[in-house]
Amino acid sequence: MKLKGRHVIWSLVFLVFGFLLTYSYQQTKNESQIIQLSDSEWEKDYFYRQQLINLEEKNRELRMELSSNRQEIQLLEEELGKQEETLGDYVELKKQLQMLTGELPIKGKGMQVTLRDSDYIPTEENANQYIVHDRHMHLVINELFSAGAKAISINGQRIYKDSFISCVGPVVSVDGVPHPAPFTIAAIGDPEVLDVSLNLTNGVVDILLSDNIEVEIEKKKDIEMRARVS
């Protein structure tokens, strides 16, 4: 009985072992099978692969073209920036020239020179020797321009390159407009330079004083002059 029981156990073991071997062999066989593709399937696979390669190549070319275009745009932007800066400089230069010629108003720091007739005129002397004349005005104006004045006015009337100043009786005419004494000559420029130029030894101020003209000089932080009326 014991021998028979052992035979049954061994039979069950061999049966299970055989089943496992058979199952393992079958799985290995199934997994090792090579999938066979038909000619049409091979053609489709090749076509799609080729399309993918072409797309990747096209994308690479487009990326290179995009990078090149960006560089060109950057260069153009830099060039336009330089042109705008140059144009801005020209516009500013034109504006400065227009202010100097009187086409536009101008303002800035500078100096104010006031010329007055002498308060004391001896009875035995000629009164003309104690009053301001057009030559005195020209003397001051020429010195101020030589010292770098950008704009000059007499009693608020702007002086231009073609302005005409002359004595007309007791007044001075500036471009046909009469101005009585005292005469205030305003100049826009560096006040320090203008002051030194006027006060040179034997210079403008000394000449005016020797001609019995009263001179008052004052530095100004803000002088404004209107544009020329056409």
Rank of each mutant, 00 (worst) to 15 (best):
V204Q: 02
T123C: 00
I9L: 08
K82S: 14
I223K: 14
R135A: 10
V196S: 04
D190A: 02
S38E: 11
A149D: 07
S68R: 14
F145H: 10
Q33A: 09
L198W: 03
L104N: 12
S11T: 13
L3V: 11
P122A: 08
V91S: 02
I35S: 06
S38P: 04
E41F: 00
L209Y: 00
V168Q: 11
A127M: 04
E224C: 09
K107M: 08
E125Q: 08
N69E: 13
I207L: 02
P180R: 10
Q96W: 03
D117Y: 03
L37H: 11
H7I: 06
V16P: 01
S11Q: 11
L3N: 14
E218L: 15
Q83R: 12
T86I: 07
D134G: 02
Q129D: 12
T86L: 13
Q96D: 09
V171D: 07
Q50G: 10
I165E: 07
V229A: 12
N30D: 15
N212L: 00
I53Q: 10
I35W: 01
N155I: 04
R228Y: 14
E214L: 08
K219R: 15
S163P: 11
F19K: 00
H7L: 07
R135L: 12
V196F: 07
N59Y: 07
Y48M: 14
E43F: 10
L97Y: 08
G203A: 01
E92K: 12
S166G: 04
V140C: 05
D211R: 09
D175S: 09
E72P: 00
G189R: 03
G176K: 03
L100V: 06
S153F: 05
E103W: 02
Q26G: 08
E72L: 08
I141A: 01
E78K: 15
R63E: 07
E65M: 08
N142A: 13
G81M: 12
E92C: 01
V132N: 07
L104S: 14
L66I: 14
L144P: 04
M99H: 01
S153C: 03
I9D: 05
Q50H: 09
V132C: 06
T86K: 11
I9E: 09
E124H: 03
E72Y: 01
N199Y: 01
V132F: 06
Q27Y: 12
S68Q: 15
L20T: 15
P180Y: 06
L55M: 02
E77I: 15
I141E: 02
W42M: 13
R60M: 02
V215P: 05
